[in-house]
Simulated assay, not measured.
Amino acid sequence: MPQPSVPAPAGRFSDDEREAVYRAIHTRRDVRGQFLPDPIPEELLRRLLLAAHHAPSVGLMQPWNFIVIEDSSVKSRIRDAFDHANETAANLFPAERRALYSKLKLQGISEAPVNLCVTCDRSRGGDLVLGRTHNRDTDLYSTVCAVQNLWLAARAEGIGLGWVSIFDDADLRSILHLPEHVVPVAYLCLGHVVELYEEPELQARGWASRLPLDDLIFRDRWGEAR
């Protein structure tokens, strides 16, 4: 009979280990146009997926699945779906923003050797899940944690990752044959890269800037500055 797991010492990481974690966080980038055509070795891809699979999830429901897409015909259909949605999106912005929007590269679907759709199975764990009793969307939040784990692991491995979010949900569902209870949470492009922007690309191109942290921290209640 297996012995119950017991807590292990929660020691501080070494200086080098801690620095590596923060480096991955601060130098992570959303990659769109710097992908190389080199394939991602299967063992490396599995390490990335294993990192995602070790994300925290409410009630240990682990609601994620990972659809690995390498077939060029599937990528082509996904790219067409993006182009259609992106044209609609561009027209939503005022004219002075639309010109810059049209110059932004917002996907690397065709260039990236691996595309990955991370989904959330909203039936995972049954009708009653510990920690989900008062907020049904904790399964979606948990799936996003898996995406972040994968992103940071990819940065540590020198793999670029870009999140493509401009899709009509129905298009992804149709192309990827998703059942009704499964939600597409993130469509990702992965591949080797030689260089990354020193700052977020949207910041470098003048679309937006990182907000000052001190403006976002309250104490005890909303609006109370520290």
Rank of each mutant, 00 (worst) to 15 (best):
P2Q: 11
G11H: 09
G11A: 12
F13N: 04
S14E: 08
R18C: 09
E19I: 14
E19D: 12
R23V: 07
I25C: 08
I25N: 00
R28K: 13
R28D: 00
R29Y: 07
D30Y: 07
F35A: 07
F35I: 13
L36V: 10
P37H: 08
D38I: 13
P41A: 10
R46E: 14
A55Q: 04
P56T: 06
S57W: 15
L60G: 05
W64V: 01
W64L: 00
N65S: 12
I69R: 02
V74S: 05
V74N: 06
K75D: 04
I78V: 14
I78W: 03
R79I: 04
H84S: 15
H84E: 12
T88Y: 11
A89K: 11
N91C: 06
R97G: 03
Y101G: 00
S102N: 14
S102E: 15
S102R: 15
L104R: 11
L104F: 13
Q107R: 08
A112N: 05
D121I: 10
R122E: 05
V129N: 04
R132L: 08
T133S: 06
T133R: 09
Y141R: 04
A146H: 11
V147M: 02
Q148H: 14
L150R: 02
A156W: 00
I159K: 01
G160Y: 03
W163R: 03
F167W: 05
F167Q: 01
D168L: 09
D169I: 05
R173Q: 05
H181I: 03
Y187P: 00
L190M: 15
V193I: 15
V193D: 01
V194K: 15
Y197L: 04
P200R: 05
P200Y: 07
P200S: 04
L202A: 09
A204P: 05
S209A: 12
D214P: 04
L216Q: 12
R221L: 07
W222L: 10
R226C: 08
